[in-house]
Design a protein around this nucleic acid. Structure first.
Length: 423
RNA sequence: GUGGGUGUAGCUCAGUUGGCAGAGCACCUGGUUGUGGCCCAGGUGGCCGUGGGUUCAAGUCCCAUCACUCACCCCA
């Protein structure tokens, strides 16, 4: 038997109904905030990710699906969405008409990590990206939008964590301060952190190895080294979150593994996913558009872990599948043929209708109707046919009535539409 | 990449010191000439993850391998 690839996943009904619900809710919320959908390819040139995410990150170093295509060009299955959105923004000169653009996009990402709870090699993200707005108001609004979405989806047990990573004016100074602080402690750091000490000492900050945490006691903190502009930007974000009544935690160690972030970073964390705490994460990346060859335009965005969000909500309940409106139970071939025509007509009118194609017993068809959650069963047998009638049974109340065949479609439509509006 | 746990029916899982492959749920049929849920009876369904080894005999013991899963790392 051929099985799906390790770390990949099928999304089957009824889970797919929950996915549609999440997707529709997110689209509704984002559109209200002025975001428009952008759809991008899954495959990009490898250089795009190497340059945006950073050569020294785990993602680029060991997690990407990279291979030469048939011509020999190096291509990569996208490990995240932002790089592609930025590429598209620059390539189509979207800044020319109006640098302010707000996009969302939904789709699969690929990272070759060891799979575990809440982590797959193909996973899905809902991304939102804003270009051309440097104001901290936008940082706060993005977090607000995120929390609003989670609130609409009734996600419980979540907390917003925020931090500021500074900018090219203040971060290098902090980096060297941190490097100096750690210089006589490098021996006690884990092997990863010894490399980070040279390449990117910020990453030592969110290492979870106890020895590294201990080495950090009394270490300089980013918050103490922000330049005046970054400081006031971060303060404004916090003030506006307060105004918007969004609770948050300032987390000095929230560094994140992508190199392009500047200033505000944030993560929405949950306790419901085992070791995976982040359901969404994002931040500002003011230098990325320019770094990828575009004009100097600020940007900020986030990504929601779709799989993780779905996993949290699945624990609640999945009543998002549509129930059958009416099940046509036909007895004998003549009746079945008649029913078949009506089923096609009714489905075309927007009624969820089912029938049995195997000419089973009435009892069996009733059972199937019941299992499908049908509101009504329409029974069509020889006796009724002779009289030009069909029997309509309400499965909940067990009340039956006779309906003339020549007014069948109208009557059913009327009854079902009425029932739908009272539900 | 590293470590732990688990692989037996569609699903959840029993399976004794090695001795005929099991239960519940689900599914199908009947009990009711043409009426669902509850109940009762019967039935379908298995390369016991895969390959090798030990043995008269392996679901059970040994080795290998694969998959799933949880955790480390990192992230969504």
């Amino acid at each position: 038997m051929i099985q799906l690839i390790r770390g990949f996943k099928d999304i089957l009904p009824p889970e797919s109904a929950l996915w549609q619900h999440i997707e529709r809710t997110a689209i509704g919320v984002f559109e209200n905030f002025g975001f428009r959908e952008i759809r991008l390819p899954i495959l990009e040139q490898t250089a795009l990710f190497a340059r945006s995410i950073g050569e020294d990150t785990d993602i680029v170093e060991k997690e990407m699906y990279t291979f030469p295509d048939r011509k020999g060009d190096l291509v990569t299955l996208r490990p995240e969405a932002t790089a592609g959105v930025v590429r598209s923004y620059i390539q189509h000169k979207l800044h020319a008409e109006d640098p302010v653009r707000k996009f969302y996009t939904i789709g699969p990402m690929f990272r070759r990590e060891r799979p575990q709870k809440g982590r797959y090699r193909q996973f899905y993200q809902i991304n939102a990206e804003v270009f051309g707005i440097a104001s901290p108001l936008m940082d706060a609004q993005l977090i607000y939008m995120l929390m609003k979405l989670f609130q609409k989806l009734r996600v419980k047990d979540i907390a917003a964590h925020i931090n500021s990573l500074g900018c090219p004016a203040c971060r290098p100074e902090f980096k060297s301060a941190l490097r100096v602080f750690l210089s006589d402690k490098t021996g006690s750091l884990c092997s990863d952190c010894q490399k980070r000490w040279m390449n990117n000492p910020l990453r030592v900050l969110d290492c979870k190895v106890p020895a590294c945490r201990e080495a950090l006691t009394g270490a300089p903190m980013l918050s103490g080294h922000l330049c005046p502009d970054c400081r006031s930007h971060f303060n404004a974000v916090k003030t506006w979150l307060d105004e918007l009544k969004i609770g948050y935690l300032v987390d000095d160690r929230l560094v994140r593994g992508l190199d392009y972030y500047t200033r505000t970073t944030f993560e929405i964390q949950t306790g419901a996913l085992g070791a995976q705490s982040a359901v969404a994460g994002g931040g500002r990346y003011d230098g990325l558009v320019k770094a990828l060859g575009g004009p100097d335009i600020p940007a900020v965005g986030f990504a929601i872990g779709f799989d993780r969000l779905a996993a949290i909500l699945e624990q609640e309940e999945t009543g998002h599948s549509r129930r059958t409106d009416v099940y046509l139970a036909a007895l004998g071939e003549d009746c079945r043929d008649l029913a078949f025509g009506w089923v096609c007509t009714l489905a075309g009118m927007g009624i969820l209708v089912e029938m049995d194609f195997e000419s089973r017993s009435l009892k069996s068809q009733m059972k199937r109707a019941d299992r499908s959650g049908a509101a009504y069963v329409l029974i069509l047998g020889e006796n009724e046919m002779k009289q030009g009638l069909a029997v309509l049974r309400n499965l909940a109340t067990r009340i039956q009535e006779e309906i003339p065949l020549d007014r069948l479609v109208d009557t059913l439509e009327q009854k079902i539409k009425k029932k739908q509006s009272t539900d």
